[in-house]
Amino acid sequence: MPSGLSPVDYQRLDAMISSTRFVRRGETLFRSGDPFQSLYALRSGCFKTVVMHREGHEQVTGFHLAAEPLGFDGVSTDRHACDAIALEDSVVCIVPFDLLELLCREVKAVQHHVHRMMCGEIVRESNLMMLLGTMTAEQRVAAFLLNLSTRMKARGYSPAQFVLRMTREEIGSYLGLKIETVSRMFSRLQKAGVIDARGKDVRILDQARLEAV
């Protein structure tokens, strides 16, 4: 929700987001090529977005946490460009895009909020390109953990201790690394006393050293 809305505008926005959907772990919210009709606000849970290469290889393009948007990939072409798959049982709020566009034209605060979210998606994709093009394997894993830490903190959770909802293989796909390399980088950071990783439970022990990687 954007800040600074009048009670009437809050009611209009709330009425527009009245529909929710439960998505079980492993189920797909939308698929590449599906008609674009709505944006989704992730109320709880976690999703990955993936694209499929011609040879059937899956490429993870993003991980989405609670309170983050899904579906902006469909705005430009009116069709979704990726699959959104739940990594755990999740609940999304459905935001019909035509109603959102109408509200944006009438309420500047909502328009500004949507523009900020869209710009955030652009920055995220730019950061991923930099991550894949300029960083070592260890730096990629460190940057991934720091990014998750920042997002957890923004949502009121511990920035130093969290559970990874994605597998090492999915992390590797996102970072452009083999699963063996991802596991080796986690082990290296753990031996150095920077993190404590036990399965999917991760604790950042030395934030400064992780940033320095």
Rank of each mutant, 00 (worst) to 15 (best):
P2E: 05
G4H: 10
S6Y: 04
P7M: 05
P7W: 07
V8L: 13
V8Y: 12
D9V: 11
Y10L: 15
Y10M: 13
Q11F: 04
Q11D: 11
Q11H: 10
R12I: 12
L13H: 01
L13N: 03
L13C: 04
A15Q: 14
M16G: 04
S18V: 02
S18H: 07
S19T: 15
R21F: 11
R21C: 12
R24F: 11
G26Q: 08
E27N: 15
E27P: 00
L29I: 06
R31L: 08
S32H: 13
S32M: 10
G33V: 12
G33L: 07
D34Q: 09
Q37H: 15
Y40G: 04
A41L: 15
R43M: 12
F47H: 09
K48N: 04
K48S: 12
K48M: 05
T49F: 02
V50K: 12
V50P: 00
V51M: 13
G56Y: 00
E58M: 13
E58A: 07
Q59T: 07
T61Q: 09
E68T: 03
E68G: 03
E68V: 02
E68M: 11
P69L: 07
L70S: 02
L70G: 01
G71S: 04
G71H: 05
G74H: 03
S76Y: 10
T77V: 05
A81D: 09
C82N: 11
A84M: 01
I85M: 11
L87C: 14
E88G: 09
S90Y: 07
V92M: 08
V92Q: 10
C93K: 13
I94V: 15
I94F: 11
P96D: 08
D98M: 06
L100D: 05
L102E: 12
C104W: 01
C104T: 08
V107G: 09
V107L: 04
K108A: 12
R116M: 12
C119R: 14
G120I: 10
E121S: 15
I122P: 11
V123W: 07
E125T: 15
M129S: 09
M129D: 05
L131F: 06
L131P: 04
G133I: 01
E138M: 14
R140A: 07
A142R: 08
A142Q: 04
A143P: 08
A143G: 11
F144Q: 05
F144T: 13
N147V: 07
N147K: 14
T150M: 13
R151V: 03
K153L: 06
K153M: 10
Y157F: 11
Y157A: 07
P159K: 06
P159V: 01
P159W: 00
A160F: 05
Q161F: 00
Q161P: 02
Q161S: 08
F162L: 00
F162V: 00
F162H: 00
T167G: 07
E169P: 00
E169K: 10
Y174Q: 10
L175W: 03
L175V: 13
L175K: 05
K178W: 02
K178Y: 08
M185D: 06
S187M: 13
Q190C: 11
A192T: 00
A192K: 14
G193K: 04
G193R: 03
V194K: 05
A197L: 04
A197W: 00
A197F: 00
R198L: 07
K200W: 01
R203K: 06
D206P: 07
A208R: 07
E211A: 11
V213H: 08
